[in-house]
């Protein structure tokens, strides 16, 4: 297993390097990164030239990329384009915030989806099953920005009507919270709900399909015939096997979402990876974008690996060499 994990990590290094070069090239050729500075009144050519020299913008793209790579590996991704602002502290901060959002949203989604999927499968074609199917289509088709705005309007209207602040509509914390934990929950609630709706829809469909396949299999029938209580049959025999595809999907999804839930974070002003990426891309600053890309790519690779390992744990027949 250890050899497998190390080998997977080693394989990912050339993938990361290639990714970084391609993205660096795309961001660099998409236009002049100093165009915004040049349009500011009174900014002289000397100032512009200083930035060009400092960041080697007059060199070819492969050379610029090599300078970036040097900074990334020896100087924690270096500084941004215009000034001396180090990139890593910002990235570290937004990673932590996104982690809070994603862990909460995925845990909520996984728990609800699991229950929905199991009950739907156990009571196929019941009212509940139709209800969850409808909810899933709703979750798949609903634009996140719209749902997020509706959540904000609802919460604001409840506040205006009752003078009770259940949840906040933006940011991660209040200016001077009395109870930090409660305040954080009040701020995270809406983005977590917005983000988890799509995941619930996805996971519950997988869980339902997987459970349907398992509950009709021979070994489950055997378990029932042996007199194993129904609850134990469902939880121990059926659910564990039904979980395999769902866990794989969830782990892959988790890795992707850690790169940032762009729309959710923007609407709720949540200082996370997605908002960071959008801001830096808007400023055409290739350096923070590259740093973001590397971190997001590492997450994806890491969770791909985790999905494989979990797969092996849940299905003892699978062994890695």
């Amino acid at each position: 297993m250890l050899v497998y994990v190390v080998r997977r990590f080693l394989y990912s290094i050339p993938v990361l390097l290639l990714c970084s070069f391609i993205i660096f090239t795309f961001v660099s050729v998409s236009g002049d990164p100093l165009s915004e500075v040049k349009r500011r009144p009174n900014v002289s050519q000397v100032t512009v030239q200083q930035i060009v020299e400092r960041k080697h913008l007059d060199e070819s793209i492969p050379v610029q990329w090599a300078y970036w790579l040097k900074d990334a590996t020896t100087n924690s991704f270096g500084t941004d384009l215009l000034g001396n602002r180090p990139i890593w502290p910002d990235l570290k901060r937004v990673m932590g915030n996104t982690l809070q959002l994603v862990v909460a949203a995925e845990l909520l989604a996984f728990t609800i989806a699991l229950a929905m999927g199991v009950i739907s499968a156990k009571r196929q074609y019941s009212l509940f099953d139709y209800g969850t199917t409808t909810f899933s289509f709703f979750g798949f088709s609903m634009p996140v920005f719209w749902f997020a705005l509706i959540l904000q309007v609802i919460v604001t209207n409840i506040y205006l009507a009752t003078d009770v602040r259940i949840f906040y509509t933006a940011n991660l914390s209040s200016p001077n919270p009395e109870n930090f934990l409660l305040d954080r929950i009040q701020h995270l609630a809406l983005p977590v709900i917005a983000l988890s709706v799509l995941s619930i829809a996805t996971y519950s469909r997988y869980m339902r399909a997987s459970m349907l396949e398992v509950v009709n299999s021979d070994y489950v029938r055997t378990a029932r015939a042996k007199g194993v209580p129904e609850r134990k049959v469902t939880v121990h025999h059926a659910m564990r096997n039904a979980l395999i595809p769902v866990v794989t999907v969830a782990a892959l999804n988790f890795g992707t979402v850690l790169g940032g839930a762009v729309v959710t974070e923007t609407v709720f002003a949540l200082d996370g990876m997605g908002l960071y990426f959008i801001r830096q891309l808007g400023e055409r600053d290739a350096y923070p974008v590259m740093a973001w890309l590397m971190v997001a790519a590492v997450f994806v690779i890491l969770f791909n690996l985790l999905a494989d390992i979990l797969y092996g744990y849940l299905d003892p027949r699978i062994r890695y060499e």
Partner: peptide
């Protein structure tokens, strides 16, 4: 307070 989305700003002003 940093809030990039103008729709959110409106809701924040409305909700105090």
């Amino acid at each position: 307070r940093f809030i990039p989305d103008s729709n959110t700003l409106v809701q924040q002003l409305r909700g105090g």
